[in-house]
Design a protein around this nucleic acid. Sequence first.
RNA 1: GCGGAAGUGGCGGAAUUGGCAGACGCGCAGGCCUCAGGAGCCUGUGAGACUUAGUCUCAUGGGGGUUCAAGUCCCCCCUUCCGCACCA
Length: 847
Amino acid sequence: MSDYDPQAIEAKWQKRWSDERAFEVSEDPDRPKYYCLVMFAYPSGHAHVGHVRNYMIGDVISRMKRMRGFNVLHPFGWDAFGLPAENAAIKNRTHPEAWTLDNIAHMKGQLERLGISYAWDREFATCESSYYKWNQWLFLKMFERDLAYRRRSTVNWCPSCTTVLANEQVIDGVCWRCSAAVQSRDLEQWFLRITRYADGLLDGMDRLGEWPAKVLTMQRNWVGRSEGARVRFAVPMHSGVSGEIEVFTTRIDTIFGATCVLLAPEHSLIDHLLTEGNPSEKLSQKIREFRALDRTDRMTGAVEKEGFATGLSCLNPFTGKLIPVWVANFVLAEYGTGAVMAVPAHDQRDFEFAKKYDLPIKVVVRPKAREGESIEEVPLDEAYTGPGSLVNSGEFTGLSTEDAANKLTQEAESRRVGQSTVQYRLKDWGISRQRYWGTPIPIIHCDACGLQPVPYEELPVELPKVVEFSGQGDSPLAQIEEFLNTTCPSCKGPARRETDTMDTFVDSSWYFYRYCDPSNDQQPFDPDTVGYWGPVDFYIGGVEHAILHLIYSRFFCRVFKDLGLVDHDEPFTRLLTQGMVLRNGAVMSKSKGNVVDPDQMIERYGADALRLYEMFVAPPEKEIEWTDSGLEGSFRFLTRVWRLVTGLCDLVVDLPEDALGRQFDDVHRALRRKTHESIKRVSADLDPRAHLNTAISALMELVNVVYGFCEKQDLVLHTSGEVRSSQLATIETRAVLREALEVLVLMLSPFAPHLCEELWERMGHTAGVGQQDWPTSDDSVAQADEIVIPVQVNGKLRGRLTVPADVSEEVLQEAALTEETVRAHTANKTILRVVVVKRKLVNIVVR
RNA sequence: GCGGAAGUGGCGGAAUUGGCAGACGCGCAGGCCUCAGGAGCCUGUGAGACUUAGUCUCAUGGGGGUUCAAGUCCCCCCUUCCGCACCA
């Protein structure tokens, strides 16, 4: 009866919460809202303690915020579309849906055993047609606004997943999911025009002060805005080819030093040269070689810089001189115009290239530091890329690089040979996936009418229940005649459905809005409802989504805003990226065999101990190494709490309400002080700092102090938790104990909710601990009457003084100078100075 | 290569603004209680020295500096992790 039995307690309270629908919420304009969200789960099969950590952080914050009077939305759901389900289906001859639903059922059970305070009635899975219907709806809205479009282009192809990937899903040249090397393919694909919002995504970051700086930096790099100019170089007829080459440059100020133009191997002029010109066999050969180079090796500089003269020349519009046109393997077709002007003297890559092929190097910028020098005579051993003033630049000579850039751009514009422009690294988001288990793209291909949107009233385009998954051939949907063949909504003639499905990141880009209004069948969500709950106040998830999911969601937020469905600018006000849980130094994974199963831990120590351990071991952002002994320690602490409270609860019930108004002696005052000090510390640690680990250590200190107090009061706690000499306890003792224990249980409850509900009930309360107000500290109680002041001599600690808290500086100084050890160090020395910092320390400077 | 973050006992980690370094926990050691302890409770636990109830010295990756005072601020270096990486 009196032993801490987490299994019994946890089952009891989980049932009660569920019966009472304790965490369901509705809009309440009279209370401040708080939307606390953890990234929803991919139903891979089993949750491990790494996932659990993410959910725990959200639960602690949610429970704490509820006690602080907020109307807290804390939902959960499933990112249920995706390849693993399809692969499992192929392997096990089952259906992706069956596999997915089984996994959801299992994982939901695991989460329920952790006692997380989710509003379960808002749960949904993205594979439900009631959800993905709105993906399709949104796609059509985007199609109407030219935000969704179809285009043939070179795309990332994962040979292992047999599908296309977005740029964001290629990490260091390999597939983000399966790590297979990504290949290039030329395909017709659907894209979402995220680039339209490039500047908005950048500007919005100014408002994301509560995001980790690291994530913002990553997003900024990803968008990769750079200002510069496009300049056209005319190509006079040569071997049957002429035209012009447009280059992108951020250094138009160096254009007088451009001694060569470099083309990407895929540049259209090269195509012309190959088809209409008569290139030498050697040149054709080189171009083929360059084009065959591994895409990512080329992008990352892993291949040596190489080039070959095309035989063509072009006219530098500013010098009026003809310069050679080369094809170079390091020029990227995807970026800018696929052509660059090479300025060897002021760009390190061009410098190396020029050295290698003996191209002229013409200095056009003189560094500030070398004003007046005749720099042309000094041989360069590297490019000078810094600012300075122009030389050898015609009428622009003498201008600063900054002024020159402006003037040259104006000049280029007025002469119609170029214009200023902004270039981004960000590319439109390719969302076509040649797979089955995803949202069908609601488009119909008609030979007569072209691309036709599926009419809104025909949504959703349901995913057909396919039986066979071979893993062979192209899109599985293309093999299903009943799905494929349809009629054109416009001409009613025979037509074919689009057979690609959407990237699952579409699903996750707006699910947080759907939670606000999960069963709306008229629109994705009601704008007023999202107006109440949104944006998400606190978002918790892994840093691996720093650019993927988080940038897509910010994009969708802007689209929804343009559609008039949301009124905020950013979807997630505060972001916390939690650290991973490692075992033996590695991320937990089935293949490594180092997965820690939460169910086993719950069975041995209970969910509360598991929760507490994962929150205590390190700050939430840090990765942690799993240790069983740490979990045992947390269990031991909870047992200590259990014994303390159950052992004393007879003493603390049935006390007069005004018991705390009495006069207390030093020992009692000390406990009260600790209690109120703890309220301050724990409150500040949780909100706003989210330092959950130090909040727990403050609670542990409080428990230690209460144990010490009991010992002083001769209240001997048995192992079994019974108090031996309860009859000796005075009203005063009981009053301060009650205060301490109530505060303890209240503040521990976000971490160990089951235990605390049970203890709270045993302390004689009828309403649940989660419905209580968060305790407030009384500064007059927290204030110590006496404080300990360290005394230093020449910065070294030499003694401590116990003085009244309100001691004057003069008295403090006097006391410090007469302290015994201090005097030993000041004897026979000259006191130069005494630094007195009020309530902090005294430092005596002697010589 | 460029940028960022970090480096504190045997271990995980504490230390708002520069103000007692090592909170809290793990581990370890001793004691109490026990038939027993791998339960519980109490105590100790950075290193070293000495004239060992105490006192002193050293100590926050290394080296300099600023300051009455530095884990915290500045400069240089080392290591680790993360991000970017031919973006013209």
